[in-house]
Amino acid sequence: MNRRRLISLAWGATALASLPAIAATSLPQVEVFKNPSCGCCGAWVDHLKVAGFPVKVTLVEDTSAVRQRLGMPDRFGSCHTATVASYTLEGHVPAEEVKRLLVLKPKAVGLAVPSMPPGSPGMEMGARKDPYNVFLIDKSGHETVFAAYPKA
């Protein structure tokens, strides 16, 4: 193997090794507003990080005040509220759906998974996976099903 080929292979291997880091930095930061005593919110944060999102956590005593400020109707409330790009995320929204939202760029407030369904990211309970919907909330506060879980 000649020297030029060896250098080319080494450069290619270095570039391939850095792809996960490049992919992670290409996703926008998610800011999560959560109560300091909530453990499942931390598990959801970990889910986002594993999916490649940079995450900033802001501790607040009252997530409903944050929800109201961001335009997410209280009826979709959960244990934490987050922002990403120009969207609001409420509850245990799967990272896959956040990525899809960012690609589709609908005119909407954001996504919500009301309550805390077992089996959603951060609410894992062994093999238990209750069905739940991820709702797209439009600017007037109406919801449509963006995704249904568990996926078939």
Rank of each mutant, 00 (worst) to 15 (best):
M125T: 07
A13S: 12
V93E: 08
G12T: 12
K151H: 13
A85L: 05
P54H: 09
V57M: 07
Y87D: 03
W11R: 12
C40K: 09
F135Y: 15
R69I: 01
A65H: 07
A43L: 12
E143A: 15
S86F: 00
V30E: 03
N2D: 12
V45D: 03
A43R: 14
S26W: 13
L9S: 06
K49E: 14
L19D: 08
T81C: 07
V60I: 12
P118V: 07
P150T: 09
E96Y: 02
E97L: 03
F33R: 03
M72P: 00
G126W: 05
I137F: 03
K56L: 10
P117L: 05
S64L: 11
G42Y: 02
S18C: 12
V103N: 10
E31H: 10
N2M: 00
P150K: 09
Y132E: 05
I137A: 05
K105A: 14
Y132K: 02
E97D: 15
G12Y: 02
P106L: 10
K49T: 13
V84D: 01
S140T: 15
A148I: 00
S8T: 11
P73I: 06
A148W: 02
T58A: 09
F146Q: 00
V45N: 01
L16A: 15
V84L: 08
P131R: 07
F53T: 02
S86A: 12
C79I: 09
E90V: 07
V93H: 07
G119Y: 01
L6Q: 11
E97R: 09
R4H: 00
D74S: 14
R100A: 12
S18M: 14
W44D: 04
G122W: 03
A108S: 15
A13W: 08
G119P: 01
V66N: 03
E97Q: 15
G91V: 08
E124K: 06
P73C: 05
S78N: 10
A112Y: 06
D46V: 01
G77V: 04
K56V: 11
E143Q: 14
D46H: 12
P106N: 10
H47T: 07
S140W: 01
A82F: 02
I7F: 11
K129C: 04
W11S: 14
A23E: 13
L104T: 13
K49F: 00
Q29T: 15
P106M: 10
F76K: 01
P73R: 05
F76N: 03
T58V: 15
P94M: 11
T58I: 12
A43M: 12
H92N: 08
S140H: 11
R69S: 15
A82T: 01
S64V: 11
D74R: 12
M1E: 09
K34W: 03
Q29G: 09
R3C: 00
V55H: 05
N133A: 13
G141P: 03
D62L: 00
D74K: 12
A108T: 03
L102A: 05
F135W: 13
G119E: 06
R4M: 04
N35E: 15
V145D: 05
